[in-house]
Nucleic acid binder design. Structure first.
Length: 498
RNA sequence: GGCGACGUGGCCAAGUGGCAAGGCAGGGGCCUGCAAAGCCCUUAUCCCCGGUUCGAAUCCGGGCGUCGCCUCCA
């Protein structure tokens, strides 16, 4: 079964046929580093991280390139505001961006070129465009001649003449045509600048993506991604630059993500209605953020709110709790009899059908919402299986459940959501003091302290001393532990608040 | 005005011709010493009108509404 992609260029879903069989080359537009990225920026990077991970999971050899725009008007403006140099601003927010991506669990691109490291290549492409009659020099600026590229507008469905009449911006009289755009800008005093055949200057924004993608992936590659607000003019201009410079088709498939909205309005730095990713991650686990994004198809708009983030967190915990409960059950002593072989077969066939449906959904233009639906169905079936046998599960039952666990961890992992193992070493030290008070524990080991508390609570419950039992549970609860009673004993889990 | 996306239960959302996934929230029940987790039950004339079809959320036409791009934007 082929993977289907919605291609903005053709406005329909197509079978993915890559340049090299078994390999996928991807270029995704990265951030301009003039501020911390907001949650809307994060959505796009997350979407393409999921696409990349899924293709890898499907066995493709993925080569993923994403630029960092570290020279730009907005960086210069920000530097002026802060009384810093543009280089300082760019360096600071580049680091902040890399930190934020790490915190969200976004895989690093295979190559992550910076615009300022690619200047010679950009100059070379501009020279090529001038040589081929697609660009012209005016007083140190170089412009791309849009009319020299007849296919201009094929991505965004725009018509050059309509663009021209609709141009609202003050027209630069030196341009031969109002729709022409800058490839190279002569530097004003105090701006970052590089030597070029046209004098000291800096590159235009659209240029770097054409240059980097060609340098890293070749003139024709498989997938070019970005958010849909980049379709025009950015991606249209990239196509014009690259195809005019190389004479060869640019990206085969154009994938565009929908925008994140707040109160049904685009989240953007210019509108001022944004939330920074780093602030959101201060209060929420990355898994909750990822779950929220995955519940909506990547091309649809997504209205963001903390309420929805709470819902996504609850949804994530449904899966995480199940996996934790399976792991716990597998640590208990198997019962002599549990489920019937029919029940086990049903569970196992559900695992198989979940894997099947997950793949079908994801192959169809990365339908993460559908894929999650498959996982939740498996969760319900597995929960039902366990609920039907409160008296305990046999070794065979536990083996079947371990297949459920394996599938959930693997499949949700293919979407970039990690189901972490419980880390006992991170138990808080306060538990020792609590155990001393309530269970007479004398040692210093946190894990042993918890064991002592659970033993004390079990004893109290046997004596029907609910006050003593609840004191232990409440004390542990205050430290971030959850105690749940089952017929097989108390189940403890530790989930510290962020 | 041009180009594009979208309109599915209380909220979110998948589904693009054949009995409407899933999550969250609410209500009822079960389990529990009380909880927690979980299970069971429970809520949809798929924006409106017309058309095509044996059959339409899904295709076509018209309307209404929301959003995006057309200017820097993930």
């Amino acid at each position: 079964m082929a993977i289907r992609l919605h291609n903005t260029l053709t406005r329909r879903k197509e079978d993915m046929v890559t340049r090299d069989e078994g390999a996928v080359s991807i270029y995704v537009c990265g951030p301009t580093v003039y501020n911390h990225i907001h949650i809307g920026n994060a959505r796009t990077f997350l979407s393409f991280d999921v696409i990349r991970r899924y293709l890898q999971w499907r066995g493709f050899d993925v080569y993923f390139v994403q630029n960092i725009t570290d020279v730009d008007d907005k960086i210069i403006a920000r530097a002026a505001e802060e009384g810093k140099t543009a280089e300082e601003v760019a360096r600071f927010y580049t680091e902040a961006f890399l930190d934020a991506m790490r915190a969200l669990g976004v895989c690093r691109p295979d190559v992550q070129p910076r615009a300022t490291d690619t200047i010679p290549d950009m100059i070379e492409m501009v020279e090529r465009l001038i040589d081929r009659g697609h660009a012209y020099v005016v007083e140190g600026d170089v412009y791309f001649s849009v009319r020299s590229f007849p296919e201009y507008g094929k991505l965004s469905g725009r018509d050059i003449d309509e663009l021209r009449s609709g141009a609202r911006v003050d027209v630069d009289e030196r341009k031969r045509d109002p729709v022409d755009f800058a490839l190279w800008k002569a530097a004003k005093p105090g701006e970052p600048h590089w030597s070029s055949p046209w004098g000291e200057g800096r590159p235009g924004w659209h240029l770097e993506c054409s240059v980097m993608s060609e340098k890293e992936l070749g003139p024709s590659f498989d997938i070019h991604g970005g958010a849909c607000d980049l379709i025009f003019p950015h991606h249209e201009n990239e196509i014009a630059q690259s195809e005019a410079a190389t004479g060869r088709p640019f990206a085969r498939y154009w994938l565009h993500g929908g925008l994140l909205q707040i109160d049904a309005e685009k989240m953007s730095k210019s509108l001022g209605n944004f939330m920074l990713l780093k602030d959101v991650l201060n209060d929420y686990e990355p898994q909750a953020v990822r779950m929220l994004m995955l519940q909506t198809h990547y091309r649809s708009p997504l209205d963001f709110s903390l309420e929805r983030l709470d819902e996504a967190k609850a949804a994530y915990e449904r899966i995480a709790t199940l996996v934790r409960n399976i792991r716990w059950a597998r640590g208990t002593t198997p019962a002599p009899d549990g489920a019937s072989s029919d029940e086990r077969n049903r569970l196992e066939s559900q695992v198989a059908s979940t894997r099947e449906r997950f793949t079908v959904e994801m192959d169809d233009d990365f339908n993460t919402a559908g894929a999650l639906g498959a996982l939740f169905e498996l969760a319900r079936v597995a929960n039902t299986f366990m609920a039907a046998h409160p008296g305990g599960l046999s070794s065979a039952d536990l083996l079947a459940l371990s297949e459920v666990e394996e599938a959930l961890v693997e499949l949700i992992g293919a979407l970039g959501i990690e189901l972490a193992e419980v880390n006992r070493s991170s138990y808080p030290p306060e538990v020792v003091e609590l155990s001393k008070q309530l269970a007479g524990y004398e040692g210093q080991d946190t894990e042993a302290a918890v064991e002592a508390l659970l033993a004390a609570r079990a004893a109290a419950r046997t004596e029907r001393n609910w006050a003593a039992a609840d004191a232990v549970r409440d004390g542990l609860s205050d430290l971030g532990f959850t105690i749940e009673d089952t017929p097989q004993g108390a189940r403890v889990s530790f989930t510290p608040e962020l």
